[in-house]
């Protein structure tokens, strides 16, 4: 159990592991996540379940190497075991009611948007996909998304592939195209991207679901470190989310809370050892 059975390098800093854990594979639904720890002194970090295969008993994670733990994780190879791997955590996403959807994945957020698009596609809904990233190199899953989307759009900051600009440029076009009405938007990506998406959908009053990546420790409602403000209510992202009504999320607070340990984290990554010291 918890053995890495497949490793793919999707872009220089983004890796995909298929991990054997039949219990989690049996239960996982789109929108849920795992928490893992890779060695005795390691921290617990949450990662979205990017895919699952109930027959083979495997779950897929896709992660971007941004700091100590994800860099260490990236060094593991096929056959290595992940020390602790717990899930599925959180509640599955319940997409807004309707028939026509836009699914937006930004950066490593493409990983979690894929199971959402796949689930909608399976239910026979119309899905338009938008993938975005800095440049061609950091994009992945174009093919997989292509299979579960009725149309797929791409935006890169530098224009190296697809539209030169932001995912929100494309979203706006899709919304203002009068031929189809969009019933719901699901967006996962960096907080500024999700915020920009919600600024647009709010204007057009389109129900929007986002997935929040708050700081977590236990993932079971025990620490309250993952709290987020939704409307006027405080929720715990690990047990009440991580998907929430994007039109109600206090994004500025989330961005600030994610910086809680920035200084401590930089002490580690700043030394260039990748956490070996």
């Amino acid at each position: 159990m918890n053995t890495i059975v497949l490793k793919e390098v999707l872009s220089p800093s983004i890796k995909k592991y298929v991990i054997d854990n039949p219990d989690i594979a049996a239960k996982a639904e789109a929108g849920q996540f795992v928490i893992l720890r890779i060695h005795e002194k390691g921290e617990r970090i949450p990662l979205t379940i990017a895919d699952f295969n109930r027959e083979n008993g495997t779950v897929t994670i896709i992660f971007q190497e941004v700091g100590n733990t994800t860099k260490r994780l990236g060094k593991l190879e096929v056959g290595d075991k992940i020390l602790d791997f717990v899930g599925p955590l959180g509640v599955p996403t319940t997409p807004p009611e309707g028939k026509n959807y836009v699914c937006i994945g930004g950066g490593v957020g493409i990983a979690p948007i894929y199971p959402e698009a796949k689930a909608l596609h399976k239910q026979g809904k119309q899905v338009k996909g938008i993938l975005g990233g800095r440049s061609k190199e950091v994009l992945f899953y174009e093919e997989e998304m292509g299979k579960v989307c009725d149309e797929l759009h791409i935006a890169t900051d530098d224009g190296s592939v697809g539209h030169k600009g932001f995912v929100t440029d494309i979203l706006k076009e899709l919304i203002t195209d009068d031929s189809v009405q969009i019933d719901g938007v699901i967006a996962v990506g960096p907080l500024p991207m999700m915020k920009a998406v919600c600024d647009i959908t709010k204007e057009f009053n389109i129900p929007t679901t986002v997935s929040l990546n708050s700081l977590m420790v236990d993932g079971t409602g025990m620490c309250g470190g993952c709290r987020v403000t939704i409307g006027n209510e405080v929720k715990f992202a690990c047990i009440d989310g991580p998907s929430f009504d994007g039109l109600k999320v206090d994004f500025d607070e989330q961005m600030r809370r994610l910086r809680m340990y920035r200084e401590e984290e930089q002490k580690v990554t700043g030394c260039q050892c990748g956490g070996e010291c």
Partner: peptide
């Protein structure tokens, strides 16, 4: 929800179970 506000559970879990007082040797 300001930065610097903890529940005792979070504070104690980071310190006791995750041994944050040994950061960065222990990584939490």
């Amino acid at each position: 929800n300001l930065n610097g506000v903890y529940s005792a559970n979070e504070f104690l879990t980071r310190a006791n179970l995750m041994k944050a007082y040994l950061y960065p040797k222990w990584e939490t």
